[in-house]
């Protein structure tokens, strides 16, 4: 692959008691690449994502970000890494219910040391392009599910991260809204030069990505090109 590798997992093993969630998984993510992870429920998709994102420490194997090991870092450093180099979009509940939307987006910037005024100004710039104009002051409880996910996308991208991790980001939305949101996520990620790792059950979503891998029983099965999936699957 000609693309330079941003994030790489090598021989990742993760056990939960007797359950082997990951049984020696290797995976590389290119710069600007959008990667879809598919697979049956309980196969280890979320676990893989968590290991790659430095949320979990694998029992064995290595995770490298731009060539540097991150799985051996202490919790504090990994936490900082997640804040500065990664962005996250989950299925639900990632926005702070007590904060207005714009402050939810501004929070990572403020955590990075930006002044509140600048952080909120930068955050607001995301609302128009994501179709959220006028929603800046609303609290998550006052947004629809799709709107809330778009705010979450803005929050994940606002710090200019290298990689966005998304775990079934549209799982709680109806198909139409889900596709719109997903499309937006892929486009916005690409537009910002970030890479994307997205766990999804939706073939259509996978088709928008550059590459699909399938996880089965803790093993990665290199998938076909996304446009082929519908045909073979």
């Amino acid at each position: 692959m000609a693309m330079s590798v941003v994030l790489e997992g090598v021989g990742l093993v993760k056990r939960f008691g007797p359950t082997v969630a990951l049984g020696g998984v290797g995976l590389a993510l290119g710069r600007g690449e959008a990667l879809a992870i598919m697979g049956p429920s309980g196969s280890g998709k979320s676990t893989l994502l968590h290991c790659l994102a430095g949320i979990m420490k694998p029992d064995a194997g290595e995770v490298r970000l731009l060539g540097e090991r991150i799985d051996t870092l202490g919790e504090r450093r990994r936490s900082e890494l997640r804040r500065t180099r990664f962005g996250f979009v989950f299925q639900f509940g990632q926005l702070l219910p007590e904060l207005p939307a714009e402050e939810n987006v501004a929070l990572p910037l403020m955590l990075g040391g930006l002044s509140r005024g600048d952080a909120v100004r930068r955050a607001r710039e995301w609302f128009g392009p994501l179709g959220l104009g006028g929603m800046e002051g609303r609290r998550p409880g006052e947004l629809s599910g799709g709107q809330a996910q778009r705010v979450a996308i803005a929050r994940a991208l606002v710090t200019g991260p290298a990689v966005i991790f998304a775990d079934e980001p549209t799982g709680a939305l109806d198909q139409g809204t889900g596709h719109d949101t997903m499309n937006l996520l892929v486009e916005a990620t690409k537009h910002n030069g970030a890479s994307l790792v997205v766990v999804t059950h939706d073939l259509q979503v996978a088709r928008w990505c550059d590459r699909v891998v399938e996880v089965r029983d803790g093993q990665v099965i290199p998938g076909a090109a996304p446009e082929m999936i519908g045909a073979t699957g």
């Binding site: 936490s79 990664f86 989950f90 702070l96 929070l107 990572p108 955590l111």
Partner: peptide, 10 residues
């Protein structure tokens, strides 16, 4: 948990 996950320092 989510704040922590997104890298908010303890």
């Amino acid at each position: 948990a989510l704040l922590h996950l997104a890298g908010t320092p303890m």
